[in-house]
Nucleic acid binder design. Structure first.
Length: 114
DNA sequence: AAATTGACGGTTA
DNA sequence: GTAACCGCCAATT
């Protein structure tokens, strides 16, 4: 059963975009979060791909700590070599398999939004 | 309108 | 660890 609309209204799309950018900007230094987490916080679970899309194609995402967003596996973004470097610069350690140690660096989002 | 494409998530082998 | 699928959904072809 889909508990979501078939298609986002432009208004919802705008809201979603704003929420995503807002959430990303709140990730503390040295911590990371996941695409799915952000999507859920924005009120649209299962829109994890849209989060990545937003970060990739939204001009100004470079001003945000978008490097603190990784997938749930702890892997860095494909085709973005700097990603890992930027995280290591903040003290985030990577496991031997090249993934972020999520159990240690995953950001526990604060519940005070809306 | 149908198929393909992703800065994804999850399961199975 | 890798690889192959499947589900997801807006954008693109």
């Amino acid at each position: 059963m889909k508990d979501y609309p078939d298609r986002m209204t432009p208004e919802q799309a705008r809201q979603f975009r704003d929420d995503v950018l807002n959430i990303v900007s709140q990730i503390p230094r040295g911590k990371v979060t996941t695409y799915g987490m952000i999507a859920a916080l924005a009120g649209w679970p299962s829109h994890s791909r849209m989060v990545g899309r937003t970060l990739r194609y939204t001009p100004g995402a470079e001003l945000l700590p978008c490097h603190r967003v990784v997938n749930q596996e702890g892997r860095t973004a494909p085709g973005w070599s700097r990603h890992r470097y930027l995280l290591e610069e903040e003290g985030v350690k990577f496991k031997a398999n090249g993934h972020v140690d999520m159990s240690q660096y995953l950001w526990e989002p604060s519940v005070n939004m809306e």
